[in-house]
Design a protein around this nucleic acid. Structure first.
Lengths: 255, 255
DNA sequence: GTTGACCCTCACGCAGCGTCAGCCCTTTTG
DNA sequence: CAAAAGGGCTGACGCTGCGTGAGGGTCAAC
């Protein structure tokens, strides 16, 4: 039973929030010190630290302070709040999936997909659906062992894949850096690169703006060699190649 | 050349921002109407709509309005802003990877990993590194065709995998719903379930709080049958099973 | 007793809007 | 043709979640 009380600044240092914030939380009744000295000094105990953790957790989830107070003061609301957080996450994932669908649709209608098709010949048009089915088959065989082998990989994979993909596309393009920037193979890879970059950026903004931004990135590659350096070696001719290819891609396929 | 001008409320409806916001942006010089009627009415044209899109794009990326104005008014700053956006995304991905590492580390030190190991026997301890290597080998053979087959899958996969994983774990647990909630196999799957849920929620908050939240989720499953319903059929005994298993897991492994 | 390092309470300021109020303009309706 | 309805305009104040002082007490050490 640690009985030690802690001052504002100490709590501030421990928790990472400012003293001012603690003052405010006190004022709002969100986090009151467990005791005060005669001089008015605030002292916090174990329970207060726990409560602060809770406050910060919900704050991170985007809850307004007033709501956090309600939730923490009325424990019967606990279920509600779990629900909200959970559904929020679900919604985010759904919209992410939607934007990917939109991107694909966008690429198709803009005629870029036809460009890509020569790479994908042998694979049916509805790549997305194919992917879904393959995944379903792959993961459908739910013998415990087999599935479990993949299990721990997946959440890592989900993020890692994004980085890997970007690296892969970069690698392929690097190998082609002495080719003509306008030839179909290069351009189809650039289209893929574009999609990946959109993935990194998020997908807000109109098509036009994305195009501008993408073209700008090509200039950036030339201006700042760090972006495309490999093993610490800058690759000026690769940068120039990318700039040409991206520019051509924007002109031809995105306008 | 569409010459049609548009009023505030119309632009508001199209773009989804409030009229007040448009007024504010005008005042700040962020988005001025292309013309005004004698009565002072604001009229916006094509260019203004495009500019608004840009503003909203950078706003979504978290740029303050003042900075957005600087960026858009001074085209020479374009490179800087691309840089910022790009690095921001990179940083987010990095921290995501970190939190996953932390989670794994956390599970290990808490002794849960030892629980899981019986499922992973045959696979070395450093699952993460193994995964990295496997991926490198798999994608290292960079003959264009082979790699390209996976390419379009990846960005979908990254998000889909998270959902798939959660569904898979749920499915496995469902098949075990008549078993004892405390037996090792069930508990190791629950541990996985816990990790996935953390993934959905994000990973803020202390270990204690996450534990509380997780236990609470178990209650939620029982309280609201929609969470665990399959094909529209609610599964009360499954919910009860999950509640037992999760509760036991929290008591045994997280306290 | 004095010097710092703390602590306190106002109180103002900031972004990014929401939300009136009070008034003018334009379009529709009777 | 006039009146009502529906926008639009410009202030101006409010809100959240703090940062950043000012002005002043307190506490431990020297």
């Amino acid at each position: 039973m640690s009985k030690r009380k802690i001052t504002v600044s100490q709590l501030s240092k421990i928790s990472g929030v400012s003293v001012r914030t603690l003052h405010l939380y006190d004022e709002l009744g969100l986090l009151k010190p467990c005791s005060r000295s005669e001089a008015g000094y605030r002292y916090y105990g174990e329970l207060e630290m726990q409560r602060l953790q809770q406050v910060l957790m919900y704050r991170e989830l985007g809850f307004p302070l007033a709501e956090i107070k309600r939730l923490l003061d009325d424990p019967s609301k606990a279920l509600e709040m779990q629900k909200a957080a959970f559904q929020e996450r679900q919604r985010e994932l759904d919209t992410l999936l939607e934007t990917i669908d939109e991107t694909i649709h966008y690429l198709k209608t803009k005629g870029i997909m036809s460009n890509l098709e020569f790479l994908y010949k042998g694979i049916p048009k509805e790549t997305a659906k194919t992917w879904r089915k393959e995944a379903a088959e792959k993961w459908g065989e739910d013998t415990v062992q087999k599935s479990e082998e993949h299990l721990s990989d997946l959440s890592r994979a989900s993020i890692e894949a994004l980085k890997q993909e970007s690296e892969l596309v970069g690698k392929l393009l690097f190998d082609l850096r002495f080719n003509d920037a306008t030839e179909p193979l290069v351009q189809s890879l650039i289209a893929r690169h574009y999609a990946v970059i959109r993935g990194f950026w998020g997908t807000s903004g109109s098509a036009d703006l994305q195009a501008d931004a993408y073209a700008g990135l090509g200039d950036l590659y030339v201006a700042d060699e760090r972006y495309l350096s490999q093993n610490g070696q800058s690759q000026p001719e690769f940068a120039a190649f990318m700039q040409r290819a991206m520019k051509y891609f924007v002109e031809r396929s995105l306008r």
